[in-house]
Amino acid sequence: MTLRFNDETFRGDYTYHNSAAAVRRFPFPFDQDSYMYSVNIEPHRPTRAGSVFEHRFDVDEHYVAEMQDRAITLADDPLRCQSLPHMELAGWDFLELVMVCKSEDYPDMFTLHRDGDRWHWINRPLGIDQRFTFMDTSTLPCGPLEYIGRQTQGDHALLDQREGNLWMDAGIVTSQADWSLDFNIGMNFFEWHAPVPKAHELGIFQRALKFLTNVQQGKPSRRLNWTMTVNPRLDTSPENYHKWGPEKRTITPENVGAKQYLRVELQSFYRLPRSNALVFPIRCYLISLEDLVTVPKWGRRFHRVLRDLPDELAEYKGFAVNRSMIVDYLARFDDGAETSAGIFPD
């Protein structure tokens, strides 16, 4: 696999863009013409060569630019990476998982040599060559979660499991859909999901927790989630809401296709071997509406989904104010034809 990394930004001049190949492999999250919450969890096993589901930790054309954006956010606000004292071991588990997966799945980009606890990690896209002692934090430039989190696309929460619940006790979070790690750290599964409307009444979280507390080593799972973002901005944090909030009101019928993005999270769940914690990668993919409608099936379906979405969900996902412009734009790409089953392009 030869990958060219985009020179692009996720703030300021927003030069982020998807190649034609990246559009085709975009994880469109709707498998039918309507949407409601469900526990849409499936095994995270290699699926479809070339898709974002092919490898355990997808590395794509945005990798280098995303890691640069993460470094900017962390320099601005170091509280985006935190770990409660008992989570250090889970951090090492996570580092091992990523290094093993990436070196196996992308041997041209990543190499891991292990001689007992003396490890040698090479990350060619980011120009990193690091020798260190596994489980000895003094041999890395920072803690294991932050170290590997700065080299892995997506946000990562480490969830401790105790008392039949999951506790968000560590994380590195710089591309979040408007939630605060600093505020939520230490919360249990029900507490950090408390602001989500409707899903509690539907029993979604009770069922999801039951599933997640039973995830076994070597059998990761995944699901897709989605929201809408104006401009291709990774850092839609509540911390900076007063800085990016005004951009939400810049949508017009003329620019909606270019400025309005569908934001999809590929969430996965892995049991970690030493700590028995779960790692919860939340990988963000962004696509403009004008790129999305180049796949006719997606244009038709996305129009129907957003047109029929309950108001409460549009409000919660934060795009109610722009919804009519978005739906009017997408309507131009919906000829009423039938759509095929599943999420992939025809």
Partner: peptide
């Protein structure tokens, strides 16, 4: 947040 013992306040005129 039980850890902070506080509710969350968010900018009301951000947009």
């Amino acid at each position: 947040s039980r850890r902070l013992g506080a509710f969350q306040g968010v900018c009301v005129d951000a947009e």
